[in-house]
């Protein structure tokens, strides 16, 4: 039994099929990053897992318990941040956490101790007795992460956890997730930020228009899309003849002549092929002043997806 098991889940909103027969498992201690552009079905999947909506068909299990059949028991193992949640504005973080902790069966002493711990972890200690109504979006997001961690759940379901945070907050959230990973927590997080997923997750799943189009380990997927874009700058202006000859070089799948001295070359392969390309271009008599990878295959594929959804 895996902590998270999604079996052929579909969700239809009137004419729109938001999730289309999605099957996905997350193993114990694994961090899965669910990637996809807006409207891909990431949040809908997370909402099904957290019983905020029901699937049109299919089943979702948390620790082997059907979320739709017995949500109370299934959700007892879960800490979740879905969308950008709001808290009652005239409560303080301590009061909000006390309520949520007690609902989950924590004793008042345990809630108090854990509240202090999580508020420190999310950087809200100074604000613990201030009314939430005065908080910024980022601070509310930190509190949302705090409430998800409060009861030390086995499973964390995070919907764009860094959403609304400033760059420092994003780094802090990433570190929190990395710490949770070290504690062998099972993490299912959605994001539209590829680098975030690459940095913290072991596995990546890509969704587009409700369908799962890719699923695998981050390294494995990167290998599968083993190609990259190389930005090449020459000292002297390039000629059409030289550009044509570069197009015909080994492993080159495309060339974009951006400026007289500036090319973007699509290369099939990894570092070895990039090195060969460098030698080959120099072999054509081009004096190279800069040669650097601007994106990898996974990013290319992701960006294509994002562009196609706009």
């Amino acid at each position: 039994m895996n902590p998270i098991e999604i079996r052929k889940i579909s969700k239809r909103f009137k004419e729109t099929l938001a999730v289309d027969s999605l099957t996905l498992d997350v193993k114990k201690g694994e961090c899965l990053g669910l990637l996809g552009p807006n409207g891909a079905g990431k949040t809908t999947t997370i909402k099904i897992l957290t019983n905020l909506i029901s699937p049109t068909s299919g089943k979702a299990f948390l620790m082997g318990i059907d979320v739709t059949e017995d949500p109370r028991k299934a959700l007892s193992y879960v800490g979740a941040v879905v969308e950008t949640p709001e808290f009652y504005p005239y409560l303080t973080p301590v009061e909000a956490l006390a309520y949520l902790g007690r609902i989950r069966g924590m004793t008042p002493d345990h809630v108090k101790k854990r509240s202090n711990d999580v508020l420190r972890e999310v950087g809200l200690t100074e604000w613990k007795d201030k009314k939430i109504g005065k908080f910024s979006k980022g601070m509310k997001q930190r509190l949302a992460i705090g409430q998800a961690l409060l009861h030390e759940p086995e499973i964390l379901i995070l919907d764009e956890p860094a959403s609304g945070l400033d760059p420092r907050g994003m780094v802090e959230v990433r570190n929190i997730i990395l710490n949770l990973k070290n504690e062998r927590k099972t993490i299912f997080m959605s994001s539209h930020m590829l680098h975030e997923v690459q940095e913290v997750c072991d596995r990546v799943a890509l969704m587009d228009r409700g369908k799962l189009i890719l699923d695998g380990g981050v390294e494995e997927v990167s290998r599968r899309f083993n190609r990259g874009r190389i930005e090449v700058q020459s000292l002297l202006p390039l000629t059409a003849d030289i550009v044509d000859r570069i197009k015909k070089l080994r492993n080159v799948s495309g060339v974009e002549w951006v400026y007289t001295t500036h090319l973007i070359v699509d290369v099939n392969g990894g570092p070895e092929e990039f090195s060969t390309l460098l030698d080959d271009i120099r072999g054509l008599g081009v004096k190279i002043t800069s040669f650097r990878q601007v994106s990898d295959g996974l990013e290319d594929m992701y960006m294509t997806l994002v562009r196609s959804s706009l």
Binding site: N51, R72, E83, T84, P85, E86, Y88, L100, I103
Partner: peptide, 14 residues
């Protein structure tokens, strides 16, 4: 409407 349900509904309470 106020999105407070995003906090309480995923809690294990009927």
């Amino acid at each position: 409407q106020n999105r407070t349900g995003y906090v309480i509904f995923p809690a294990p309470v009927r």
